[in-house]
Nucleic acid binder design. Structure first.
Lengths: 217, 217
DNA sequence: TAGACTACTGAACAGTGTTCAGTGAGTTGT
DNA sequence: ACAACTCACTGAACACTGTTCAGTAGTCTA
């Protein structure tokens, strides 16, 4: 019967998806607990009680699994709730980049995978391909543009430049902290605050002949 | 004969040192060409025409080899010639951090090992122990202090805070570039310049209630 | 010349990502 | 109901990895 056949196919597809999900869940648990380097296909397989080879029926390689986890990370990052306490539009920008910094502390393994890892080359190449990443960046740039239009940055300032500078600044602190390149006594939060503040102040004061970096993509 | 015995010991020590040097040279060549992840003890051994096990007579672990290379990297970074073209003391600071950025481009593998790698935990823990690193940081902080004393930064600004903020800012750009998290069209140099400039301008303008991060170490 | 010291090797261990022939259960067509 | 087919899954293997260790060969000492 046709109806039965279709039902079977659908069920099989659901089962496939469930197993794929289980692989990702197991991978994520191990990876959050022990870091990317210490997750092996065999450990994932053991956790889901399959043979290691079975995983390759669902993901072409270990890198593919971590590419999927990186996407998950980007969704987490962007799903963070907007802080409604910010009334000043500059405060909103500040809060946005501060959330980025906090994400790096709350989910260091995700952050490393998304922004640091070089052993999964496809992440560096593909992360801009996640549509929602580009969309999010556009939204932030649009917000910044609004703030520029409101006259809170010197005339002629480019929204994309502002975005990149703030991103680079806060990213620097996050990485220094994550990679433990700060002395134990150094207060990472204070540094993050100060660095963000310095960049914001500098941008609002105006950088000497502001640069025209090429537009994104 | 005592004289002979000592001569032999000295020669043996020289030979030991020569082999250790050969190991480091081979490791560095491979590592610069192919990255840390792709250097194996067996490849190093093959390059120096020894058996893999022989290396363990000279270095306790692969990490130890890369700790030594990281030290080499710090020496390279600090050995960069001062740019005498800078007359303005602020220019000197700018030039110093710009050199740091250039180092990240010229020696990406060293940079990654020194400031990014988390798979050689001892580097994160030990890099502050290299005496000359601390010494260098002290010298830079002292120079910044001089600039503060000359009234080029707002009164009450802490030299160490200035150092950390500039470091974090330029470090952020370097990492974004190195980890290929910039779109291909994005101009990393321009971003580095702008980010550094924004931080410097922000610092000179004065950050709202400047932070008192704990002193280093 | 016998003994000690040390530098080095080959083989092994336990781990890694990945591939592939083969098995067996479930679904399909007759 | 039975044969045919499909497809998920496994076990074993391959070529790697870092590291250890018993054993050997060669030099130096007494």
């Amino acid at each position: 019967m046709k109806g039965v056949r279709l039902g079977v196919k659908e069920r099989q597809e659901r089962e496939r998806e469930a197993v794929a999900r289980a692989i990702l869940d197991a991978a994520r648990d191990l990876f959050v607990a022990e870091g990317y380097q210490n997750v092996s296909i065999r450990k994932i397989a053991e956790k889901i009680e399959y043979s290691p080879a079975a995983i390759y029926g669902y993901f072409a390689s270990k890198d593919d699994i971590f590419l999927a986890l990186a996407e998950e990370g980007f969704r987490m990052l962007f799903a963070r709730p907007e802080d409604p306490s910010a009334t000043d539009p500059i405060d909103e920008i500040r809060a946005g980049f501060w959330r980025f910094y906090e994400f790096s502390k709350e989910h260091p393994e995700y952050f490393a995978l998304m922004f640091l890892d070089r052993s999964v080359p496809r992440i560096s190449q593909d992360w801009q391909r996640f549509g929602f990443v580009r969309e999010m960046r556009r939204r932030i740039a649009a917000h910044i543009q609004g703030v520029i239009d409101a006259g809170l940055f010197p005339a002629g300032t480019e929204a994309d430049t502002v975005f990149r500078i703030l991103m680079a600044s806060i990213h620097g602190v996050a990485v220094l902290h994550l990679c433990e390149r700060l002395a134990p006594a150094e207060n990472a939060d204070a540094l993050a605050r100060d660095t963000l503040e310095a960049a914001l102040t500098g941008l609002r004061t105006g950088i000497p002949h502001t640069f025209h970096s090429e537009p994104c993509e």
